[in-house]
Write a protein that binds this DNA or RNA. Sequence first.
DNA 1: GATTCATGAGACATATATGTCTCATTTGAT
DNA 2: ATCAAATGAGACATATATGTCTCATGAATC
Lengths: 185, 185
Amino acid sequence: MNQIRPSTRDAIIEAAFLVFAENPGAALGDVAARAGVGRATLHRHFPGRLELMRALAKIAMAELDHAVAQATADAQSYEEGFRLSLEAIVPLANRQWFLANEGLQVDDEVAKAYRKSRSELCRDIELAKQEGLFDPALPTQWIAETYESLIYAAWSMVRAGDATSNQAADLAWRTFSNGLKGMSK
Amino acid sequence: MNQIRPSTRDAIIEAAFLVFAENPGAALGDVAARAGVGRATLHRHFPGRLELMRALAKIAMAELDHAVAQATADAQSYEEGFRLSLEAIVPLANRQWFLANEGLQVDDEVAKAYRKSRSELCRDIELAKQEGLFDPALPTQWIAETYESLIYAAWSMVRAGDATSNQAADLAWRTFSNGLKGMSK
DNA sequence: GATTCATGAGACATATATGTCTCATTTGAT
DNA sequence: ATCAAATGAGACATATATGTCTCATGAATC
């Protein structure tokens, strides 16, 4: 063994997303335990809590960006784009949650990128209004808030065992598009 | 001055809701500072963090119950009931949030009451389905999750200064009812 | 004006989380 | 099988939050 095992690092990261989603103030020892790893090992991979949080934020951002880009690569309309994005994000809802609630506070670069992606979301929403997907009279900010909120609602359904990711994403999409519907739909 | 000033206690409680909404792990010193009160004074009113959290949970529960009961006293239908409830809850969204995210973990009695009120919500949703307010094919749990999520979405709008409580509650109501609409509406 | 009591400030001890270090053990590569 | 490196367990010091206490101050009651 001549290098840090990637699997150990991955286990810590996945455990951290799970534990911090339950309790953002959880101790690093809890994260290590959940990962099935010693506390010292966690510190070898991430010097401190801040560095771990930063890494999680960057990973969350990267995974979300990649998943959405992948899913919407061949979308033919904003309607399709939003639907496919929801499907892609719901399974990563814990990333989205961590990013929005913890990530922004620990890394300026991440915060900046998040603001940018939020403004792109708003731009897409306004273009989708022109496509007739949303009621143009609704505030763009409200549509964005609804979008994010329904991701969390879908996440709750999955966690509670009341739906699969796909089922929850479908419910979110139907509620989203019907709830904010424009005239042409 | 021959008794603990109620205003001090109220200031601590209000500050605690504000501070814990921003950061649930905030130190009691932060709460005291926000309340414009010494840390020792906070401990005189609430022996420890747990007791403060418990008090907040009970207060949140009581305020929400009262506000909803008041608002829906003369509702003539489930449609009206849900609309008026939303209007009543949105200004208390920080209570709702605290209750759901922190309160349940610190007080069994509160947790039990919360589960009861959740099951009453689900019962109302099913009755509202019969009234034609919601699509009967939608899972009741999804409707409940959507309801709660839109409260938080509305709260975000208010915090960001993008809407008043009434405006945000109206947006939430329209999105809620349109998004989950039944046939007869 | 005298009294009473909540308050504010700060000292203090304690508990918990954090971060570092050591050393024996295990694991993967050669 | 041997070696190098990562790991686990635990000791240790430190930082921060917590909870208690004391004392001086200020405000309300008499």
